[in-house]
């Protein structure tokens, strides 16, 4: 299976996203290290859905011939200043603020689009 939609409604859904993303990365041929990077990134993104957006959806999928994408979509309050959100240590929820900067380093590409109050979409990709 190369597309998986997981709804993040409570804390235990986060671990499911972690498990599934690591398994999919393995099936797609990523090294164990890369699969751990992807799973850690999935954990950060799914946790953000739960903490900052009151839930949302994470989609795990193959991207092109040699990649994997983690995509989150939510209808929470959104991210007013994306550059700030990507800064090391910036958090509006008294967190460590290293989730998004961490995802950026763990993955090869990170795109964030946010229409505050309407929809936030985050895509993180990694290539084989």
């Amino acid at each position: 299976m190369s597309v998986l939609h997981l709804s993040i409604r409570n804390e235990s859904d986060i671990s499911e996203a972690v498990r599934q993303s690591r398994a999919m990365a393995g099936r797609l041929g990523f090294s164990t290290t890369s699969a751990y990077y992807i799973a850690t990134a999935a954990s950060e993104l799914a946790a953000n859905l739960w903490i900052h957006a009151g839930g949302g959806m994470i989609t795990l999928q193959r991207h092109g011939a040699r990649g994997m994408e983690l995509m989150t979509v939510d209808n929470g309050p959104g991210i007013a200043d994306i550059d700030k959100a990507l800064e090391e240590g910036f958090s509006t929820a008294n967190g460590l603020g290293c989730g998004l900067p961490g995802v950026k380093r763990l993955m090869d590409e990170l795109d964030i689009a946010s229409y505050p109050g309407v929809r936030t979409e985050i895509k993180a990709r990694k290539w084989l």
Partner: peptide
């Protein structure tokens, strides 16, 4: 080991 790698990659002394 893989946890350590990912933590280092994420940055900061997590």
């Amino acid at each position: 080991p893989f946890v350590a790698l990912a933590l280092v990659e994420m940055g900061r002394e997590l």
